[in-house]
Design a protein around this nucleic acid. Structure first.
Lengths: 377, 377
DNA sequence: GCGATGGATGCAACCGTGTGCCATTTTTTG
DNA sequence: CAAAAAATGGCACACGGTTGCATCCATCGC
């Protein structure tokens, strides 16, 4: 404790490294360990308790101990109590590897995201994290760094290391994902594939509402700033916009595609929107939309006075950018939770048929949308 | 492929669930599997290839196959080629559980964060994800949801399931963390504990620069909007501010503590700063600072005209809030990478002594700081 | 009092991989 | 050409937990 107070050298210049004062303590620890138990080949770690240790302590067989801990009804109540007592005393923690080896279940799932730094995944990750823990599963986070090949390779190697996977925004073709299922149960988010359970957010429905919102404000020409070509949700959103515009007598223009993961993206989209003679623009996602806002601000374009901007997803930051962004809010945490729930259901001995869950999206109106300017069409 | 085109029903009302059209295909698949191999008790999954399968195919012993794949020098080159060929043909993937069981190494590490939705962790997670993959390790993401008890319990259960852990912002007391090390190697981020390897970002140094920046702009009274009491980095930053202010002849005021994970936090901090008769405020982190900006904007206070605001960390959003935030940028991805590197070094047979790496932080000047107003002092 | 019944427990065989030790083969050396 | 040395491959066991089957004992019914 008093050692802690000593470590206050905040005025030290930022050197690359600084040695801690721990050389002696670690040496002492190592010596202590070595003296304790040396199970095999001189390992330096203390040996954790096994079932056999509990068995020895209670005078039971390991099989009985195992049943006492995992099949409570299968042993005498008194025996069970004895075993649990001993387990507590020895600080017993079951070895997951051993359990996995003969049961085939690892007790963990993988969550694959295309890019961890994309704020879109924050909410999803929180949802998967919560539901995983609720289900007693560990969550492997795999960042694909926007690489489809990496995804393929990783899925192959993960196949037998996890019980299943949640794929948030996979890049693999439908066939590859559908083929994956027998080897490893999979749930996909934001995509619909026949035969694969999925969680889809009804952002297209929200796009319809956004178009209504814009048309009611007098907009008659609405652009769509597209994301990466071929992405399922990207095409869905464009179609929803085109359809709603047609229904309401407005003109729909498709711009792009624009990259949506790096900041420069929004600039190109903003310029394209200004060229397209529209009064409003719905962007594929909030990252793109916020990038547009920045560019428009740089160019001195008034939002929403001259151009209204709508985003998708309601990511972190959409409420404090300038101006606060009107967006189609996606229930990301719910989607993550539901994805894991469906995966867990899929892992049960009698898996339900693959289904596609649809979560509603809400149009959140902030300050980046307003009445259409008079002159434009 | 043509099936994919059919799945375009974006105008469908957002129902809770919709059945996929996959019942027949999954049934066919299941039948095909059952016909293939039924290893034990009629499992429904296809049996993955094992070493024994390669051995049978090549006419070698499993031990030789094992060595061919893991100890290239130990077998004849021709034998090794045969084995690798067979492994490819059978799509062999080593069973991690079995490997872990007898080697004691799981090939995975845990990364513990106190709250996944805190944008502070985004950069860190990307760093740990990259370095983990580079080291051939899987990364377990554990969200502690701001609960110290959960952390304690989880660390106990994880102890034998992972090779080590990176603790980003742990809540456990120093003693508990130091005691953890013999059972499970650990690297802590943003905290310095004797005997435990750590990666610390020199934000306090950056705070010093920020104070110089503010003083040079004429500020003489600077507030610190504190984060959660007792957090190591929080105390460090305050001390750095107080020390730098004393050195430069400015007055330092400590406000708070304020919660820094939820948005309402910033409001209280902003009001407190206005009451404190200061002209500038350095906040514990960017979440708090951005919350302050929002509140100040609501109250019609000009930033930086009436009050300058500085944040810490340079999280996602700090560059597009209004006004863009002057902040002390932390190299978060580097910190994550380095944390994993140090953990990996710790896992080697001859672990180096625990050391504390310090990464420099940079003051990034944007638009939330400016000259001090005339009247105040 | 004896056999049937069922609950409680132990035995032993797995799961798939890694590795120490030994047998065998091949190469080198005197 | 024989002996020594090196290279190569196989046997068997260990890792820790689960589970089918056998065993044992107590209780119950007749």
């Amino acid at each position: 404790m008093d050692e802690d107070a000593r470590a206050t050298d905040e005025d030290r210049p930022p050197t690359a490294e600084a040695d801690a004062t721990a050389t002696d303590t670690t040496a002492a620890e190592a010596a202590a360990e070595k003296a304790a138990t040396t199970p095999r080949g001189g390992e330096s770690r203390a040996r954790p308790a096994r079932l056999a240790d509990i068995a020895a302590r209670t005078g039971l067989a390991t099989s009985t101990v195992s049943r006492a801990l995992t099949r409570p009804g299968r042993v005498h109540a008194a025996t069970r109590a004895r075993v649990e007592q001993a387990a507590r005393e020895l600080d017993y923690v079951p070895n997951r590897a051993a359990r996995a080896l003969n049961s085939g279940r690892t007790g963990s799932i993988a969550v694959l995201v295309s890019d961890v730094t994309n704020p879109f995944y924050f909410g999803i990750l929180r949802g998967t994290a919560r539901q995983s823990r609720a289900a007693g599963l560990l969550q492997l986070l795999v960042d694909l760094e926007e690489s489809g090949e990496l995804e393929d390779a990783l899925l192959g190697r993960l196949r037998h290391s996890v019980d299943g996977a949640v794929l948030a925004a996979s890049r693999l073709p439908d066939r590859a994902l559908a083929a994956l299922d027998p080897a490893m149960p999979v749930v996909v988010l934001n995509r619909r594939i026949p035969g694969v359970p999925s969680v889809v957010i009804d952002t297209p429905g929200g796009v319809g509402h956004a178009v209504e919102h814009l048309v009611s404000l007098g907009h008659r020409s609405i652009a769509y700033a597209a994301g990466r070509q071929g992405v399922w949700s990207n095409e869905q959103r464009w179609r929803a916009l085109a359809r709603a515009a047609a229904r309401l007598g407005a003109r729909a223009v498709r711009l792009g595609p624009f990259p949506t993961t790096r900041w420069p993206a929004g600039a190109a989209a903003a310029d394209a929107a200004l060229n397209a003679r529209v009064t409003a623009c719905i962007a594929f996602n909030d990252v793109l939309a916020i990038g547009m806002l920045r560019r428009l601000s740089e160019r001195g374009v008034d939002v929403p006075g001259e151009l209204s901007v709508v985003g998708c997803d309601d990511i972190f930051g959409a409420d404090f950018c300038s101006p606060p962004l009107t967006t189609i809010a996606a229930p990301l945490e719910d989607a993550g939770r539901l994805g894991v729930s469906m995966l867990v259901a899929r892992l049960r001995p009698d898996p339900p048929a693959a289904r596609a869950a649809v979560l509603p999206a809400q149009l959140v109106i902030r300050s980046s949308t307003g009445p259409a300017p008079r002159a434009a069409g």
